[in-house]
């Protein structure tokens, strides 16, 4: 430490820039696999919840009148809704696979030890699932 503190004598006053205005936000916490899997789990979970809400409403319409039900379901047959379905399958796929991982973390003795590996297995299975589904789905959506 001597060579650091000794420089003070006779040295000019250190230049300290003024505080930067504007940027007051703290940094985003940089978690690792565990945190980001939880973030994804939350986002997909809430999205699925809102889908189910709409889904129960539109399905309940069939009890009001089958014609109204058909009309509403008919409006879903657009490319935008098709992409939405793709996102929905992706969200459910991740939520289901990561849900199994969380069950293993909670109930399998070695679960916490292997959580990172299990996260990457979840991602791998998820990608395989999407490779099987997405091209087919997109062909259907855009050929009609």
């Amino acid at each position: 430490m001597a060579e650091q503190t000794g420089v003070l004598t006779g040295s000019p006053a250190p230049k300290i820039p003024a505080p930067r205005p504007g940027r007051v936000q703290g940094t985003l916490y940089r978690g690792r696999e565990g945190m980001w899997s939880w973030v994804l789990h939350r986002i997909t979970g809430v999205s699925i919840y809102f889908f189910l809400l709409v889904h129960i409403l539109d399905t309940a319409l069939v009890r009001v009148s089958p014609a109204a039900y058909n009309a509403v379901i008919g409006t879903y047959k657009t490319p935008i809704m098709g992409l939405g379905e793709t996102a929905l399958v992706a969200a459910i796929g991740f939520h289901a696979l990561n849900g199994l991982r969380i069950i293993l973390i909670d109930f399998w003795g070695n679960g916490t030890k292997h959580q990172k590996l299990m996260f990457w297995i979840v991602i791998a299975l998820w990608i395989i699932l999407l490779i099987g589904f997405v091209p087919r789905q997109l062909m259907n959506v855009f050929s009609e």
Partner: peptide, 19 residues
């Protein structure tokens, strides 16, 4: 606890906190 493992990763003593 939502098993995000941030605690395990942050612990300077290497405690397996989530475990």
């Amino acid at each position: 606890c939502r098993t995000t493992f941030n605690c395990t990763e942050a612990c300077p003593r290497g405690i397996q906190v989530t475990q």
